[in-house]
Design a protein around this nucleic acid. Sequence first.
DNA 1: CGCCTTGTGTATCTTTTGATACCATCGCGA
DNA 2: TCGCGATGGTATCAAAAGATACACAAGGCG
Lengths: 209, 209
Amino acid sequence: MEATIDLFGKLKSFSEPELQKEILKHGKLLKANKGDILIKEGQHLNFLPIVIKGQIRVYQQKEDREILLYYVGPEQTCMMSLSSAYFDYNSAANGMATEPTEILVLPSYLIADWQLKYPSWNKFIIKTFKSRYDELLATFGSVAFTPIQGRVKQYLLERMKKDNSKKIPVSHQTLANELGTTRVVVSRILKQFEKDKTLKLYRGYIQLA
Amino acid sequence: MEATIDLFGKLKSFSEPELQKEILKHGKLLKANKGDILIKEGQHLNFLPIVIKGQIRVYQQKEDREILLYYVGPEQTCMMSLSSAYFDYNSAANGMATEPTEILVLPSYLIADWQLKYPSWNKFIIKTFKSRYDELLATFGSVAFTPIQGRVKQYLLERMKKDNSKKIPVSHQTLANELGTTRVVVSRILKQFEKDKTLKLYRGYIQLA
DNA sequence: CGCCTTGTGTATCTTTTGATACCATCGCGA
DNA sequence: TCGCGATGGTATCAAAAGATACACAAGGCG
């Protein structure tokens, strides 16, 4: 890989100089545009993507329904690829860039080696497994126990925190895709919230009260 | 720990003699009865249980509803404890023995050390993370996309395979708890299946056709 | 400007799921 | 033997969620 200005300024997790050398040697930088599909369900993966900048949306799909699993943000990687690195495995989800995204791509066969050699890499791997699991478990609990109305509210509140803004740019259809339901259901629920004065609806965005 | 006959005959994953010594030195054997609660939601865990014999049911609960996450069988361990070993963490689920169960209990602080020292231990850890994730993801997809009727069918078929028997000893209430719904719903669906001749209902068990 | 895509509002109808209630039966233990 | 809890059948009603269809508006683009 060509020397990249400030790569490890953005990837602070990897402190060992030796590890950094290896990453520079074997890694490739990739740029993805908004909407680019990086991983498809059923696909066999032999690389590990680490997001440098931007974001990847990982979701499951069934017929015309889809549901969000998690986002991969900077300094993070994806479970599907990680699973593939250790076992013969086909992706159980899709990955799509939600904005222009820069990705560091590493070949799978190095993952396990590095894990034994470099403590910071090991920590990264374990942390990924752990936090992805937690996320999924939280979403699972939500889907299993909370009616959609509550999940819409949850989603909007989390989004507000994350973006630090009460103006949430999302279409009803997109919201439905995040939550695993349909557009009509989302519109209906949002309208109810609007009547309850908890938000206002506009074309293309939602303004929380 | 007192020398235990054939412990490593049952735990074939741990091949290194050094690791076996460590396990014998720091581990304790524990016996649980059917119905014993081993882990509670919110509880802080400082041990890692590895099942030797029997089974632990790990599930989430909310008010009077509950839903199965997974079972921990022989040679397996639980995600909650594993997460606790690496990070400050409170269990997000409950664990209960479903039958008389023998458990090897190891202190949390050793998990990470051993992982760097013993490849077979590392493999065990990674495999646990990976397979627990896969299970949860499968269940998640099922809950998100499949109507309950289909999930009842899935459950019964899987149970048939696992037990290698078409006679499935389970009450409607228990089935409801596994699937995150209520008894009445399960009874209704099962009755429909009986009308369709795909199974017969008896007190305390279900006979698949 | 007209056209097309995307986004939104809403009505109607059906299906699924849940809540409640009541009753019958079984089997265990006092 | 009686009582009681666990199990299961079922009816009724309500709520949640989904399917379909249609209308309209906003905005980009040729």
